[in-house]
Design a protein around this nucleic acid. Structure first.
Length: 447
RNA sequence: GGCUCUAUCGUCUAGUGGUUAGGACGAAAGCUUCUCAAGCUUUAAACCGGAGUUCGAUUCUCCGUAGAGUCACCA
């Protein structure tokens, strides 16, 4: 049994996007599962469109995801090999230099064409079964602009041959390239690898996912605070499943369970909501320290300084923040909306908002807060935690009307219509601040 | 248009020649400490159509229909 060798072969003409990630993941999983090799090959034969920054973005994204490669190649470094093969094929009569009449700007008067044997090519695809093409329709297709400028279909075949690639796992938009590549393989005497064409990841309108459908770059997801585990787990399940109901899968589990036979035939629509669900799950698994770092990195400068200056408070609100976001980037939006300010400085109140909806009498409301104040004041500072605070107030709140007690208390502490519950808030803020804010609220009510 | 591929809840999917067609996301409702979120419970929601094979087809075959991909001196 020969060693399994897979490859991921992006062209650096754009950033690493989510569809490519899945292709890379499946290739990686398959290689790892079989103790094989995973090759990263940058296909930059198009000198016009290939950009170094895209190559960097792709490598950066792959590293971040942990899809490490065993070997690395760049087609622009391999010009001599392509040239050799072209010469070899010309000698064999499989390829010829063709005189052309340039129709467009930039077209050559001389290109290298493949002498099409005009036959039916049938190949087996691991997910779709046999696929046949009559290659006659391709004509004598161009494989290189000149001896030093090979084109995609040719470079791919030479590379896969030279690198010993055994399994080609790629998007099904490459299906129609396969017969051309097989023709070249046969001319070269190269073995035919095992083909697996993955269904596309689709936009909501079912078309091929592309830049115009919004944020797709992996680096953007990283920026937005999505975790690699979440992206990988989600993307793995778009077009594959372990054959049971298990959805939360670690990389180790995926390496064990992955199989080409369970790969889906139909395309899958990209669904950001489900990604968010995965991300929430994996965010909660993060250590408090790491979660804190991610959040802090997305705070506006001013808030970040306050959070650093009040690290005790910041540590306590991490889990509160985590409860309300589905990606760390959401914390930035909340922060910018001022949702976290009250943890670090006293809020300003809107007198109307201090009153529970069923309460119209400010003096009654203030009396209730007075009572809360007294109950809180009895709590020993060392036991100022949510459970204790709740116990201290609960009976009274139930008796006086929970909403009419808890709403003003919570609003006094946060100055917000929406916030965590008053007991959690009080414990985060501490006894001293809690009492001060309630007193402030009472003052305002008595005006 | 030619060629190639695809078709189960809105979405990701499981599944079988006979099932109450299962799970997840999302949605709705209820519960849980006032709000928000989380959590829990429950509900709604699907086999593209037509023939054929068969005692019986969502499942097998064919034909439609719909959608997608691809038709470069791009990859």
């Amino acid at each position: 049994m020969t060693k399994v060798i897979t490859r991921f072969a992006p062209s650096p003409t754009g950033v690493l996007h989510i569809g490519s990630v899945r292709t890379a993941l499946y290739s990686w999983l398959y290689a790892r599962q079989n103790n094989g090799k995973f090759i990263l090959r940058i296909e930059d034969t198009d000198k016009e469109r290939s950009k170094k920054e895209f190559e960097e973005n792709i490598i950066d994204g792959l590293n971040w995801l942990g899809l490490n490669h065993d070997e690395f190649f760049r087609q622009s470094d391999r010009a001599v090999f392509y040239k050799e093969r072209i010469i070899e094929l010309i000698a064999k009569g499989a390829v010829y230099v063709s005189k052309e009449e340039p129709k467009e700007l930039g077209e050559r008067a001389e290109v290298i064409r493949f002498k099409n044997p005009n036959k039916v090519v049938t190949f087996r695809d691991e997910v779709r079964g046999d696929i046949s093409f009559d290659t006659t329709e391709f004509g004598d297709f161009v494989i290189a602009k000149d001896f030093d400028t090979p084109l995609y279909n040719f470079a791919v075949v030479v590379d896969d041959f030279d690198m010993g690639v055994t399994h080609i796992i790629r998007g099904d938009d490459a299906i129609s390239n396969t017969p051309r590549q097989i023709l070249i393989q046969e001319a070269l005497g190269a073995p035919r690898p095992i083909y697996t064409h993955l269904p596309m990841i689709l936009a909501p309108d079912k078309s091929k996912l592309s830049k115009r459908h919004g944020a797709l770059a992996v680096t953007e997801y990283r920026e937005e605070g999505y975790l690699p585990e979440a992206i990988l787990n989600f993307v793995a399940l778009m077009g594959w499943n372990p054959g049971n109901d298990q959805e939360l899968l670690s990389m180790d589990e995926m390496v064990k369970l992955f199989s080409l036979e369970k790969v889906q035939k139909g395309g899958a629509v990209w669904n950001i909501d489900k990604l968010k669900w995965f991300n929430k799950h994996y965010m909660k698994l993060l250590s408090q320290e790491n979660a804190g770092k991610e959040i802090l990195a997305r705070f506006p400068d001013a808030l970040r300084e306050k959070a650093k200056a009040n690290s005790k408070i910041f540590e306590k609100i991490i889990s509160v923040i985590l409860d309300h976001i589905s990606a760390f980037g959401d914390a930035r939006a909340f922060a910018e909306a001022g949702e976290y300010d009250y943890f670090f400085e006293d809020p300003t109140y809107n007198r109307e908002s201090l009153l529970w909806k069923d309460e119209s009498d400010a003096s009654v409301a203030s009396q209730k807060l007075q009572k809360v104040l007294a109950l809180i004041d009895n709590i020993d500072e060392a036991f100022f935690v949510p459970e204790t605070i709740k116990t201290a107030i609960w009976d009274y709140a139930t008796e006086a009307g929970r909403g009419s007690v808890l709403w003003p208390m919570r609003y006094a502490l946060s100055g917000r219509d929406k916030s965590p519950d008053p007991f959690t808030l009080a414990s985060i803020l501490g006894k001293e601040v809690t009492i001060r804010r309630i007193k402030d609220a009472i003052k305002l009510l008595l005006i």
